[in-house]
Design a protein around this nucleic acid. Structure first.
Lengths: 188, 188
DNA sequence: CAAATATCAAACAAAATGTATGATAAATAT
DNA sequence: ATATTTATCATACATTTTGTTTGATATTTG
């Protein structure tokens, strides 16, 4: 979000983000025109082009912001805990993060842009998990490639989170975590 | 693929499918123009418009074909087996299906069109599983909502399949199934 | 072989993108 | 506070891509 922090740039990008998300709630991203965005945002089209080559760059930038925000949420939490405990904490952070940015995630999901999102979430959770779980005894014993284990749990858990997000309010965050707790074995 | 089976229509659509997939290997779907497709396919642009409104309809049609093909693969296999055994057979069919259509799946994956694919695969596997697992004793005992269980395993397993697909030939199909076998508990 | 129809080439209208220019307003720096 | 820098704006215009139409040609069906 910071180019060199000229206030006008920050403001413009913020409006573009908000407008894009707003439009994505009613219209598929594929069908949104740059001119639609600018019109709704009350921003000159040449200003748009001053910042982004196309709408894909705009969306990239928006997702990049999300990523930064999630990484920040993940920054400070404890090390050296059992793999299950670790996973549960990671998830708790993730679910809170998604819940806070509900609007953004839903908008992206409703637009068949899941690929984006899943890649990014898996990327983050995988990197995190890979570091933490690398020398975990249970995992070494299981004789499974670490990446397989991570892909499995990351995919499963993210899928639960995403469906939870779209079926608004069917379960509370706490219930969701409780269900997940039952799904994950004590020893992986 | 059949409108009313005029050979020319079948041929045209087939070529359009192949051409789109070919282009998607080198270029993101977002950036592919209808004129690119037609040029490469040696098909007149007005012919394209005679069949599809835009490139998204073309991709839809292509994915629809995939879906039909997977459903056909899933048609005939045994009922009344334990949940784990059931899941393993389902997966074996799924993996074989993906392996056979490797080119198509990779092309779509490389194009950030995963959303499409994951939705579709989850849809199919969920519907299948929901029918089969509904009255399963183990599941009733677990006190978890069925949809949560299905989402979890569907997401996890599909994610493994997808990453397997992109890391070409790192494991054999058989190894992959063996790993998955270890990941799924005997009693869910 | 006759009838039906899908494809084609070509030309055109409309929509959307992308670029350039100089004036104006807002932010930064001294 | 003022000067300087620079982001935004309005406007105009070139280009690209899409979408439609027409009638001729070729292929398929019956």
């Amino acid at each position: 979000m910071n180019e060199k922090t000229d206030l006008r740039i920050i403001k413009t990008k913020k409006i573009l983000f908000e407008t894009l998300l707003k439009l994505m709630k009613h219209k598929n991203f594929d069908k949104i025109k740059i001119s639609d965005i600018c019109e709704e945002a009350l921003i000159n089209r040449s200003t748009f082009y001053a910042h982004y080559q196309d709408k894909y760059e705009l969306l990239d930038d928006l997702v990049e912001d999300l990523k930064v925000s999630l990484l920040k949420d993940l920054e400070n939490y404890e090390n050296n805990i059992s793999s299950k405990e670790y996973i549960m904490r990671l998830l708790s952070i993730l679910i809170n993060h998604i819940d806070e940015k509900k609007d953004i995630y839903s908008a992206i999901l409703l637009n068949n842009r899941n690929g984006f999102l899943i890649d990014f979430l898996i990327d983050v959770t995988e990197r995190e998990s890979a570091i933490r779980l690398k020398n975990n005894e249970d995992i070494v014993k299981s004789q499974l490639p670490l990446e397989i284990i991570i892909r499995f749990y990351a995919g499963g858990l993210i899928n639960i989170c995403l469906s939870w997000l779209t079926q608004k309010e069917k379960y509370t965050k706490e219930e969701l975590l409780e269900y997940i707790n039952k799904l994950i074995p004590e020893k992986i």
